[in-house]
Computed example of a mutant assay.
Amino acid sequence: MTAPPVVEDRVADAVSGHWVDRRAPRPARPYLRLARIDRPIGWWLLLLPCWWSSALAAIAAGRALPDPWHLVLFLVGAIAMRGAGSTYNDIADRDLDAQVARTRNRPLPSGQVRARQAAVFLVVQALVGLAVLVQFNAVAIAVGVASLVPVAIYPFMKRVMPMPQLVLGLAFSWGALMGWVALFGGLQAPALLLYGGTVAWVIGYDTIYALQDIEDDEIAGIRSSARFFGERVRLAVGLCYGAAAALVFAAGWQAGMGMVGALGVGLFAAHLGWQVRRLRARDGHGALGLFRSNRDAGLILFAGLAADAAWQGLL
């Protein structure tokens, strides 16, 4: 007698062999997957703009290091809010996710978690994020609360906008404002330029990410920048990445960045250029690897900006 097939509940683009799949208690696994703990690239990409902004603020303030306490708070907040945002997105998208091969095993469309249970879990994660946010000054708290607007509308944009990645960029780039306002209590040109550059970066890397789903999205009628750009996707990503590097450099220049920071921006730009050279329009597997490599690109930029602050502090 043939044994029944084993149903794989791990999401297709999760990290293979992650501790969530191997060691977490089985009842907790669907919730950890809702929070994307098995896909850490998400919270890295939310965290890195916060760290860039903190390092940029340190350069402008003449400090040798970004505020260590702020860096820790941003780490905790990024993990919590990435989880909350992903849970909210999955609640809104559970019917669409059931139509896409990469997402149909997510906890909600696969029935591992009910919508009401997911909503409770969302509130818990949001409260953790709120506990982090109230550690900052009043202006930073107000700026942080304002980030909920693009977060709230993003899941619905893929139904009406040809490029929902633009709204995702507005949401995922918010940290580029937070590190600066947490130190200075206000928003000046360097933070706004960094935010613009980060939005362009997010549109670029999420267009790469969307290449994994382009065929299923066409069938389900889901809009994405990958579908919008079509065969010109490589050029489009290159333009986004070029704008990102230029605006980040302008932000550093306005903040008083020196040669060490400029080198960091140059290496960041070189990494983005490498991604564009490797990009292929219908290579979903390769697209996932390129998307994940943006963690390394972001860490290179952070290291350059932090080293610039330290170098200038020694002068």
Rank of each mutant, 00 (worst) to 15 (best):
A3V: 15
D9G: 12
D9I: 15
R10D: 11
V11P: 12
A12P: 06
D13L: 14
S16N: 13
G17L: 03
V20F: 01
R22I: 05
R23Q: 14
A24L: 09
P25I: 06
A28M: 11
R29T: 11
Y31I: 04
Y31K: 07
I41K: 10
S53N: 08
S54M: 14
R63E: 14
A64P: 11
P68H: 04
W69N: 14
H70K: 09
A80L: 06
R82D: 11
G83M: 08
Y88Q: 11
D90E: 04
D93P: 07
Q99H: 10
V100F: 05
A101E: 13
R114S: 15
Q117W: 09
V120K: 05
L122E: 10
L127F: 12
G129C: 07
L130M: 15
L130N: 08
F136R: 02
V145Y: 00
L148G: 12
F156Q: 10
M157T: 13
V160N: 08
V167A: 03
L168I: 08
G169A: 01
L170W: 06
A171F: 06
G179E: 03
W180T: 00
L187N: 00
Q188M: 09
P190E: 02
V199N: 01
W201I: 02
I203V: 14
D206I: 00
T207N: 06
L211R: 13
Q212H: 04
D213I: 02
D213N: 08
D217I: 00
S224G: 02
S225Q: 03
G230V: 00
G230H: 03
E231C: 05
V233Q: 11
V233L: 07
R234P: 03
L239N: 08
C240V: 08
Q254T: 11
M259S: 15
A262E: 02
G264S: 07
G273C: 05
R277K: 10
L279K: 00
G284K: 08
H285E: 15
H285F: 12
L290T: 00
L290W: 01
F291A: 03
R292V: 11
D296N: 14
L299C: 07
I300N: 11
A303F: 10
A306R: 03
A307I: 02
W311N: 04
